[in-house]
Nucleic acid binder design. Structure first.
Length: 425
RNA sequence: GGGGGUAUGCUAGAGCGGUCAAAUAGGGCAGACUGUAAAUCUGUUGGCUAUGCCUACGGUGGUUCGAAUCCAUCUGCCCCCA
């Protein structure tokens, strides 16, 4: 097997490791079962989850066996290290529905079976991974047993020294007992997966370091076995923003929430300074190619961005969609003809247009403005276009006289398009 | 259980009883400049049938000609004591 750990490190995936040498050796010697936890609060993952996903994919390609966990059980508690957002309580049904959506997305990157897989031994050659909801084993836990078997291995002194808890204790926020237990449950996950599936490596965001280590310790104490932890650097964009957020909210992997074209555009529009890092993280291009593209400067960097956008879109949505998105993007910004098929389109009844629609209403209706007032501002400030002609009059009424090929092309600002076609009846 | 504090727009955070749709910063949007980048500059940023009207400053009820601003009460959060 290749030296995956080295490869991951070279691509920037590694922030902390329990023991780099041992992990390198472990991954070189035999097939390793490893796991990553995902948050089941939404039915789709967003680009922020792409770091762990790509890391998992690299490992699987190198012959190792992934397990993805959704934290249906742990979500019911709420991770105190993520104190910015209150997590909503989700029903079991909701969580498993979300799990299905997440699984479908993971399967684009990983070979995962949704039933498990070679229970209990990592010796089998199968590389097919597993996908579980930790609620399956956490919900049935008996409190007294848990305290006695698991709880006794945790020293409160140590726990409150951990950064995540420490901050909460020092700040005014306080920490509920419920949250204080989060770490135990996550540690128990690791123990469970070690016992059942021989899992020996857990990966996660760097904010999870403490929680993952708790699991490593627990396995050592109870099973007297050495298992490992690897964390990824927390990704922010060069401008300091959280990865994957745009004006419209998160960039989702689900094509329903974020169209392949928007997805593609997200990557095209990344900050110059992020390009080479992102190529290493989010594509499978050989590292030499990543370096070559990353070294491009000024205008030439657009080539690198195009590769980044194309590759990421291809991974998330497939080649056909990526091709379409690239064509559409080139057309929209390269001066060529716009590809109508790629644009958000709505249908409008012919008689409505005959009667005339106020421009503000039109922009609002198709979603290029969130309200009529916003549409009004857009027009007043010169950001509204119909068929590439700027419209600055808020009194303008759009009628059939503006039709071109029986359609209207609306544009808001530089990048947002919407096409309207007429429906005769 | 006792005492104290706080609650404002997307976020942070000002706000004398009238001139408050609410300072300021960040964010967002639009324009200029560009490379579909960054930085910079400018405008804008509750809604609407729009020189006016409606809805908003945790909930409810008061005082007042008039309340985001005062009082009561409820709720949430925080701090101190137990």
């Amino acid at each position: 097997m290749d030296n995956v750990f080295e490869a991951l490190n070279e691509r920037g995936f590694i922030k902390q490791v329990t023991n780099a040498e041992q992990v390198t050796r472990l991954l070189a010697e035999k097939q390793v079962t490893y796991y990553v936890g995902f948050d089941p609060t939404a039915s789709s993952l967003h680009v922020g989850s792409l770091v762990p996903i790509m890391a998992m994919a690299h490992l699987q390609r190198a012959g190792h066996k992934p397990i993805a966990i959704i934290g249906g059980g742990t979500t019911m508690i709420g991770d105190p290290t993520d104190k910015t957002e209150m997590r909503p309580m989700l029903s079991k049904e909701q969580i498993s529905a979300n799990g299905k959506g997440i699984l479908a997305q993971l399967q684009r990157y990983l070979n995962l079976d949704n039933t498990l897989v070679n229970a209990g031994n990592s010796q089998t050659p199968s590389r097919v991974g597993g996908f579980f909801n930790n609620a399956d084993w956490l919900l049935s836990i008996n409190y007294i047993e848990f305290l006695r078997d698991i709880g006794k291995h945790f020293r409160v002194n140590e726990m409150i020294r951990a950064e995540g808890y420490k901050q909460r204790l020092e700040r005014e926020l306080g920490l509920s007992f419920l949250e204080f237990n989060y770490q135990l449950l996550q540690a128990y996950d690791y123990l469970y997966l070690f016992r059942e599936y021989g899992c020996r490596l857990q990966l996660g965001g760097d904010d999870q370091w403490g929680n993952i280590l708790a699991g490593v310790d627990l396995v050592r104490r109870i099973e007297a076995e050495r298992v490992h932890a690897v964390t990824f650097p927390l990704l922010t964009t060069a401008s300091g923003a959280k990865m994957g957020k745009t004006a419209g909210g998160a960039v989702w992997l689900d094509a329903e929430r974020t169209s392949p074209y928007e997805f593609y555009q997200y990557w095209i529009n990344v900050d110059d300074r992020d390009v080479s890092r992102f190529l290493a993280y989010f594509t499978f291009l050989p590292i030499d190619e990543v370096r070559r593209l990353g070294s491009l400067e000024d205008e030439a960097i657009r080539e690198a961005k195009e590769v980044l956008a194309y590759e990421t879109t291809r991974l998330a949505h497939g080649k056909a969609e990526a091709d379409k998105a690239r064509t559409a993007s080139r057309a929209a910004f390269g001066g060529g003809n716009l590809d109508e098929a790629e644009m958000p389109t709505s249908v409008i009844a012919a008689e409505r247009l005959n009667a005339g629609i106020p421009i503000m209403a039109l922009f609002h209706e198709v979603g290029l403005a969130n309200s009529r007032s916003e549409a009004r501002r857009l027009v007043q400030q010169g950001g509204a276009y119909i068929n590439e002609k700027q419209c600055r009059s808020i009194d303008m009424v759009v009628g059939t006289d503006l039709l071109e090929d029986n359609a209207l092309l609306l544009r808001a600002g530089k990048k947002r398009y919407h096409r309207i076609v007429l429906k005769e009846n």
